[in-house]
Simulated scan of single mutants.
Amino acid sequence: MPTRRYDDSPGFGALYARTVKATLRKAEYEPDSDGLTLELPRTAVDQDHLAAYREVTGFSAGPALPVTYPHVLAFPLHLDLMSDPSFPYKPMGIVHLSNTITQLKPIPMHAELSIEVHSSPERPHPKGTIFDVLSSVSVDDEVVWTDSTTLLSRSAGTPSAHADLLPDPELKPTASWDLRANLGRRYAAASGDRNPIHLWKLSAQAFGFPRQIAHGMWAKAACLASIQRAGGLPDAYTVRVDFRKPLLLPSRVQFSHQRSTDTVDFALYSEDQSTTHLIGQLQTR
């Protein structure tokens, strides 16, 4: 498996240009057989950037990174991987189905991090082909955080394939959130994810949405920040979310969560609870 190593995180301008080029490549394109691993062996957290991320997601200040923040640090490597000529799918149009993060221990906000990203083998899905972009973060040569981002490349699909989904919990609303039209642009500034479906009504309509939609990883972060404020988060846990229906902006949503001994079930619903936008489950390790 070839490895590409960086001294600094790749710049977003070149990455988005490559992403468009990769999406326009010819249908007869043949990928390389071996997967690519990307490494960023040494990176420090920009404290101003971290503060902006906390502000838009709702995480409170503290000595450790928010559990979803390393995903933002790994995201440029995700784009680099998916826009590389060796990658077998066209990156624009890929659907984000779910995300699973495991925090093995809190990550100090001033730690030097080592980030590694690669993709899993593909597997069939009723609506196409799915694969995972896998990320890990190490501190002092110890893996402290992992992330699995599950993505769907649409095609004819395999009707008999199993779609792995979290069960729908029965939860009562615990909070109402008013989400403004500029939320996608604010999160894009903090995360670097400037997919046009999140930014403006017209740019989202070009991809078939009636108006811009919230980032899935913003929704996950906001849910966990709310759980943290309501009773805290453990030091070591795994948290998975499934993204069910797009969350249009602006909108009003209902957040729900319920704690048990080692588990927190949570969800985001439309205001009238007729639509489920996100289902999540946190399990203490």
Rank of each mutant, 00 (worst) to 15 (best):
A222G: 07
D140S: 05
P121I: 01
G128K: 12
E271L: 11
A156W: 10
D32Y: 02
P210H: 10
V20L: 04
Q283S: 03
R186P: 09
G192W: 03
G208Q: 04
H96C: 00
D235F: 09
A206H: 14
H125V: 10
R4L: 12
T129A: 02
A189Q: 14
S138D: 11
A163L: 03
D7W: 05
K105E: 12
A221V: 01
V239Y: 14
A64R: 08
H277A: 02
N182Y: 08
D46A: 14
S191C: 09
P246G: 10
K26M: 11
M1L: 08
D164A: 00
L268Y: 06
A156H: 09
M92P: 13
D242H: 11
G11M: 03
G13Q: 12
S136Q: 07
H125G: 14
V56K: 05
Q283T: 04
T43Y: 14
A27D: 10
P210I: 15
S138Y: 13
H96M: 04
G35Q: 13
N195S: 07
P41E: 02
P210D: 12
T284G: 02
F75K: 07
W200Y: 12
H118W: 00
A204F: 04
S98C: 07
K172Q: 08
Q103G: 07
H162P: 03
L77R: 05
L224H: 11
Q283C: 02
S120C: 04
S148Y: 00
W218D: 02
L15C: 07
A225C: 07
D140E: 10
D7A: 14
